[in-house]
Amino acid sequence: MRGLTDGDDSPSRGSLQAVITAAAVLAALALLVSACATGGTGTRDEGPARADSVAGAAASPSPSPVRTMQTVDPVRLVKEDPLVSDAVKKSLRPCVGDDYPVDVSYGDLTDGSVDDVVINVLTCGDAVGVGSYVYRADGDRYQNVFQSEESPVYAEIDRGALMVTKQVYKNGDAVANPSGENVITYVWKAGRFVQDSFHHTDYGTTVDTDPTKVPAPAPADN
């Protein structure tokens, strides 16, 4: 009987241990395969993480276009422009030394990649505007896209629009004392300047243009 209970080399006991060992190996293999199938983290890699990364990439702003300013020689530009009248070209002479009577400003008027150039040609004595011009960059050249030679005139850039001021004179008005002014605003549309607004101002006494109003009679002399 002693041999039956302490006999470790019996065939039945060895077979049982072999079965237990094989089952443990299979369980370990199954656990390893399950971990590999889930990416080694025990949980599946779902879509939210990918969605966040895509949203972050889409939110990156695109760079805005960069405008450039190129300075010009205004005197040369006006004198070489075939659209400028001979009268304005002849009047464009130095006042003192090499000081020409021109005002130049740069800004965005025509939505180009290079700033537009506004040039006013003035008289030497009283700085009255004899011509106003707008030039737009066209490659390595500048194109005349607006001009006004109805003196006195002055053009300037006003919040992206072209504002042209023309003095109004009546008979007997001195050059330094006009009776009023017209202010015309132009905007760039479809490749050209079009009038956007018009405003007239009378200096001094306000004139009532309502035809239904009759002025009061003057007092009688005693």
Rank of each mutant, 00 (worst) to 15 (best):
E80A: 08
D138A: 14
Q195H: 05
Y135P: 00
S91G: 14
Q17S: 09
Y169D: 13
K170C: 07
V25H: 06
V130F: 03
G14W: 02
R76C: 02
F193S: 06
L29T: 13
L16I: 10
D99R: 11
N171C: 06
V78N: 01
S179D: 11
M163H: 06
P178V: 05
D99F: 04
L31I: 10
V168S: 14
V114Y: 03
G47S: 13
D158V: 07
V78L: 13
P48N: 03
S60H: 10
T201M: 07
V207G: 05
P63I: 09
Y106S: 01
T165I: 14
T209K: 10
A55T: 06
A23D: 07
F146K: 05
L26P: 00
V19T: 10
I184F: 01
V25Q: 12
D173F: 06
I157K: 04
T68F: 07
T212R: 11
E150D: 15
S53D: 14
S105I: 04
E156N: 08
H199T: 09
P63Q: 11
L162E: 03
S91K: 13
L162P: 00
T110S: 14
V183T: 13
Y106A: 02
R136S: 12
R2M: 02
A37S: 14
A174G: 15
D210W: 13
G125Y: 10
A190S: 15
A220W: 02
N171M: 14
V102T: 12
W188T: 06
